[in-house]
Simulated scan of single mutants.
Amino acid sequence: MATKLPIDTLTELARSRADEAARRLAALREANLSASRKLELLQEYRLDYGAQLQSLLQAGLPAPQWRNYQDFLKALDAGIDQQRAAAAQSEARLDHGRTDWQHQRRRLNAFETLAERLQRQQAVVQNRREQRASDEHAARMLLDRAARA
């Protein structure tokens, strides 16, 4: 049975970190998509209510109702600005998460490459040992035959 090498432990740890970074990245993508959808929805509401106000103004809108619409549109614009900032923050977190995931993947790939190289080196050493043992066995057999003859 092969013993567990330190590089194996490091590779497992790197794999675990890369998997966790991938999970975080997926959550960040979902949050970013949600923030973008909310922003789009608010912007659509703004366009709809703006168009509705224009129609009402053309039909003759009383001043108190016009002020209510104006106040509502100002509040909607403030909400859009807040959501735009939230979407920008979400995008920044997504970029950071993507960078972290890429870093963790590169780190994992490096450890896997080192582990493969080490395994190849160990295989070469093992093959040499086996060849040496086989050669020694063949030499002993030859000596035994020569001694009997």
Rank of each mutant, 00 (worst) to 15 (best):
W66A: 15
A35E: 13
S36T: 14
F72I: 05
R105L: 14
G79T: 11
E116D: 11
G60I: 05
I80D: 04
E12I: 01
S34H: 11
D81C: 01
E130Y: 04
R23Y: 05
Q102V: 05
A18S: 15
H103E: 11
A35V: 08
D95G: 01
A22Y: 02
A75Q: 07
Q43F: 10
A2H: 11
A115G: 10
L10S: 09
T113P: 01
L143A: 15
L143Q: 12
E116P: 07
S16E: 15
A123R: 12
D144V: 07
N68A: 13
D81T: 01
A59Y: 03
Q121D: 10
G97Y: 00
S34V: 09
R148N: 08
Q89G: 09
A51L: 13
Y45P: 00
L73W: 03
M1N: 12
E116V: 09
A139Y: 06
D48T: 00
A149V: 10
R46M: 12
L33I: 10
E136S: 05
Q131S: 09
M1K: 07
Y45V: 04
M1D: 10
D95M: 05
S16L: 14
A149L: 08
A87F: 04
R145I: 05
R105F: 05
A87G: 01
N109V: 08
D81Q: 11
R120V: 04
W66I: 06
Q52P: 02
T113D: 07
L73T: 00
R98E: 05
D77M: 05
N109Y: 02
R106W: 09
E12S: 11
L56H: 02
D48L: 00
I80W: 06
R128N: 13
R29I: 03
L47K: 13
P62F: 02
K74M: 10
R23H: 10
L61I: 12
Q65I: 13
A18D: 08
A146N: 01
Q58T: 14
Y69E: 15
R105Y: 06
